[in-house]
Simulated scan of single mutants.
Amino acid sequence: MRESTMKTTGNIIRELRLKKGLSQEELAEGLNRRFGSSVNKGMVSKWENEISEPRLDAVRQLAEFFHVSVDYLIGSLEQPSPGEQPDISEDQILTIAAHQVGHEGPLTPEQMDKIKLAMRIALAKEEK
Rank of each mutant, 00 (worst) to 15 (best):
R55Y: 05
Y72I: 08
G75L: 11
R33N: 12
L27P: 14
E25Y: 10
A122E: 13
K41E: 07
E104V: 09
G105L: 07
P82M: 02
G102P: 06
E53H: 07
E90L: 09
E126T: 10
G83T: 04
I88G: 01
E104G: 05
A97D: 10
P106Y: 00
G83M: 08
M112Q: 09
E127T: 11
A58S: 15
A58K: 08
A98C: 11
D57T: 09
M112L: 09
L94W: 08
T108W: 00
I74E: 07
G42Q: 13
I93E: 15
P109F: 00
F66E: 06
W47H: 13
V68I: 14
I115A: 10
E127Q: 13
D87T: 10
S37G: 01
S89A: 09
E90P: 01
Q61N: 13
M112D: 03
E48P: 05
E48R: 02
A63M: 11
A124W: 05
E64I: 04
G30D: 03
A63V: 10
R34W: 01
L56Q: 13
L77E: 14
G83S: 06
A98Y: 10
T95D: 01
I74G: 06
G30Y: 05
G102K: 10
E126H: 14
P86S: 14
V70P: 07
E110L: 05
D57Y: 10
E78W: 06
Q92K: 08
K41R: 15
N40Y: 05
M119P: 00
I93P: 00
V39F: 00
K125D: 13
L94K: 11
K114G: 02
R34N: 08
Q79M: 06
L56S: 15
L73T: 07
I51N: 03
A97K: 12
N40Q: 09
S76E: 15
R120V: 06
V70K: 15
K46W: 02
H103G: 01
Q100T: 04
V44W: 06
A122M: 08
S38H: 11
S37K: 02
L31D: 05
R34C: 01
E78S: 11
P82F: 03
E53S: 15
A58H: 09
A124Y: 07
L107Q: 03
L56E: 15
P86G: 06
L94P: 10
E50K: 13
N40G: 03
M112G: 00
S38W: 05
S38R: 10
L27V: 14
T95S: 13
I115E: 03
R120D: 15
K41Y: 04
